[in-house]
Every structure is written in structure tokens, then in C-alpha cells.
């Protein structure tokens, strides 16, 4: 009888009191548009295409991001300039499908594609969710300030011959070793 009393009546009263006392607790709500939340630097939001320290496009149109993307929302086409640099002719991300997973950033060998802490990307027209290269390209280097793909890779482009990249030895002329 006593336990019944304790389990029903007393516990209900205690519950009511504890919930009532919550009225003094400060609300957890962040009043968003007026009160901006702190976004962590590694937050995965709006995608950008960065440039290398010389101001050239980093992306070499290798298509690895498009392959890695689980929802297939990246479309691009490779082209080449007269110096031999590869770059995308168009680069298109359909943000109405992107799930901000960050796989593209992980796949990218040149640190070109990066996710940023910006998340305010709502649009009234669905077609406006498709971003072209002009929309994605920024003028800076993003998260990696010193990295320049063509300076560390062995590919020969205009103004940089074989063997001139960082930590790269001049190639051995195999024919000269012939007896």
C-alpha cells in the first residue's frame, strides 16, 4: 500500500514540481537570424574551388571528386591550356543534391575543392541551387595556403620543366648510361 502510494501519488507530485521548476532554467534555443551560432572551421558547408598561391585554379579536372561523390552531384569536363595545365572547362555542383558529406574534399589530390562553414544557401528557385565554376571559384587559397599542385608534381608545364618541382631530382638520361 505504501509503495503504491509512493509510486503513484508522490512520484507524480515530484514530477510536476521538477517540470514546473524548469521555468527558471534558461532556454537552449539559439534565436538564429539575430543570434548567429559559432560555426566551427571544419564545418562541412558550402563548397568552394580554391586557387593556388600564384592565383591559378587548383583543380586539374581529374574527376576524382565526381567519382567519390555518393550522390553524383558534381559534373565537370577537362580541358587543357597551351602551357599544358589541365583545368575544368566547366565545373558544376548541384547543391540541391549535395549532402555535404565532404568526400569530394577528401578525394581531391590538389586541395582544390573544399567545404566551408557557410550554410545559408536557401533559394526560391530550384535551378538556382546549381552552381557553376564562376560561382564556386574563390580568389584565395582556402584552408591550405602554401600548397601548389604543379610545384610538387612531376608533370611538365609551361615554365616548369621535368625535375624542377620540389624534392624532385633531375631525371636520369637512361640513354647516356649505355656502354
Amino acid at each position: 500500500m505504501f509503495t503504491l502510494f509512493k509510486d503513484t501519488l508522490v512520484s507524480q507530485v515530484v514530477t510536476l514540481w521538477k517540470v514546473f521548476a524548469k521555468i527558471l532554467v534558461k532556454a537552449d534555443t539559439v534565436q538564429y537570424p539575430e543570434e548567429q551560432p559559432y560555426m566551427f572551421p571544419r564545418w562541412r558547408g558550402r563548397i568552394i574551388l580554391s586557387r593556388d598561391p600564384d592565383g591559378e585554379e587548383r583543380c586539374v579536372a581529374c574527376n576524382l571528386c565526381a567519382v567519390a561523390c555518393p550522390v553524383d552531384c558534381i559534373a565537370l569536363q577537362k580541358t587543357e591550356d597551351e602551357e599544358g595545365r589541365w583545368y575544368p572547362e566547366f565545373f558544376r555542383i548541384n547543391f540541391s543534391r549535395c549532402i555535404m558529406c565532404g568526400f569530394c574534399e577528401e578525394a581531391c589530390p590538389t586541395n582544390a575543392i573544399q567545404l566551408t562553414p557557410d550554410f545559408e544557401m536557401a533559394e526560391y528557385v530550384r535551378q538556382d541551387m546549381v552552381w557553376e565554376k564562376e560561382d564556386l571559384l574563390i580568389s584565395g587559397t582556402g584552408k591550405y595556403h602554401d600548397y601548389s599542385f604543379y610545384n610538387v608534381c612531376g608533370k611538365k608545364i609551361g615554365g616548369k620543366d621535368k625535375g624542377e618541382a620540389q624534392n624532385e631530382a633531375v631525371p636520369v638520361n637512361v640513354r647516356s648510361l649505355l656502354p
Binding site: V19, F20, K22, I23, V25, A27, D28, T29
Partner: peptide, 8 residues
């Protein structure tokens, strides 16, 4: 209700 649930 929201005050009691720590909301606004």
C-alpha cells in the same frame, strides 16, 4: 510548454 521544455 516550451518554457517547461527549455525552449522559447
Amino acid at each position: 510548454l516550451s518554457f517547461w521544455q527549455e525552449r522559447l
